[in-house]
Design a protein around this nucleic acid. Structure first.
Lengths: 230, 230
DNA sequence: TAGATTGTTAATCGATTAACAATC
DNA sequence: TAGATTGTTAATCGATTAACAATC
């Protein structure tokens, strides 16, 4: 089970490659060159070439990569991600949106259950996982050995929920509440910062306005990459 | 109105500083050293020191920064962000969650209106902006000179919506639909990739499991910073 | 003076990109 | 051979961090 180590940044691009290559495959295209893929997905061509080399070993010059091969390699990497479960706390609009989101599965990620103070009000028939009372969280997490928690409660409740998550054995927290959590050392924390992301986008837009005369294409490429820092 | 240029990555930390410093201020604390703030917010001390220097000019060794001063400086930078408007398309759960999110205002960002194919079904009384029919989008954006659009429609509708946004004069798109958009050069695109973020978190967690014996504190710091790439 | 703190310069790190050599 | 393409090495870039000097 020796796995090449795939950097996270490459990992994040895999579903985009897969998507695009699937469409090409369906259209009967047999080969794809890094340059063409890069153009289609707004990425740098060298990046794509490196990614492909990492994914699928050597290619043949002048020939491009076999679409089938690439899809197999990407698929096997994604399929071999260890299945990992998370729970979600706080079934408001954002919480339920995440619960209904289909994209996690492709990475072997699964939201096993959701918790809320008023579970009975929140089960709306579209949510595909059980919604349980917060009181059941600790036993659930320990029983199912869940290590990841998603926090989508209001800011004022977030720290208390985080404490409970830690008591429940959670080791990594994805926090959407706009507040800073204090966690014991050894717990991984990632703060999603929606306002910051939009602010970054606005910032880029105004930068771009300044440099109207620069090659537009280049600008776009750069723009697309610069926004997403933590 | 000569503005020091604040890098986006610093900008994103400002609300966290503000939050923390306000609490200190309320507790009667007059001075804050970069080291202490860094520890509280899980940041590197040198980063915080550099941020503070950028924000508030020189400080006095051995004394820390005046909490009041820092708050004034942060406030003035955030207040002087140009007021910018965005629109949102697709008032599902994720869309309404964003519409109700309060954090944008602090950056001078405002969602001016939302658009949907069935606006009448979506106005639920909690959404604080008008929800209009998609047909009205183009005239609205041109009238209000809106330049940013948030896409929270299902993947299959996203490209068509993006085209419409571009026709409406939108210059920057924040895309939540898990699909790749083709846009004319000169349009700024930022793809939010929820699945990728959770995958990154899972990745970090497993890395951390491997290095159990390393100083936990250090690990946590590192962890918190590494996740959020685009 | 000693210690906490600031500020700066150089090193590091990860990712992307530029330039170019190799190959079918 | 010419051209498209791959792969590699070095440069670049932004951000963070380490090491240290300066100051109250």
């Amino acid at each position: 089970m020796e796995q090449r180590k795939i950097p996270v940044t490459v990992l994040k691009r895999l579903p985009a490659y897969e998507d695009y290559l699937r469409k090409q495959q369906a259209a009967g295209v047999r080969f794809a060159s890094a340059t063409v893929v890069a153009r289609a997905l707004n990425l740098g061509d060298v990046s794509v070439r490196k990614d492909f080399a990492l994914l699928a070993g050597e290619g043949k010059p002048n020939c491009g990569r076999s679409v089938d091969d690439l899809l197999l390699c990407i698929g096997s990497i994604l399929d071999n991600q260890n299945e990992k479960a998370a729970i979600l706390v706080g079934v408001g609009k954002l919480g339920s949106a995440l619960l209904e989101y289909r994209g996690f599965a492709r990475y072997g990620l699964r939201i096993a259950a959701a918790f809320d103070l008023h579970p009975e009000r929140k089960q709306d028939g579209q949510i595909p996982v059980p919604v349980l009372h917060l009181d059941e969280m600790e036993s659930f997490c320990k029983r199912e050995r869940v290590l990841m928690g998603i926090v989508t409660v209001p800011a004022h409740a977030a720290q208390e929920v985080a404490n409970q998550l830690v008591r429940s054995g959670i080791r990594a927290i994805w926090n959407f509440a706009p507040t800073h959590l204090l966690l014991p050392a050894g717990t991984v924390l990632y703060n999603e910062n929606m306002a910051g992301s939009l602010a970054a986008l606005a910032h880029l837009l105004s930068q771009q306005d300044l440099s109207e005369h620069v090659s537009k294409n280049k600008e776009q490429n750069k723009a697309e990459k610069d926004v997403g820092n933590s």
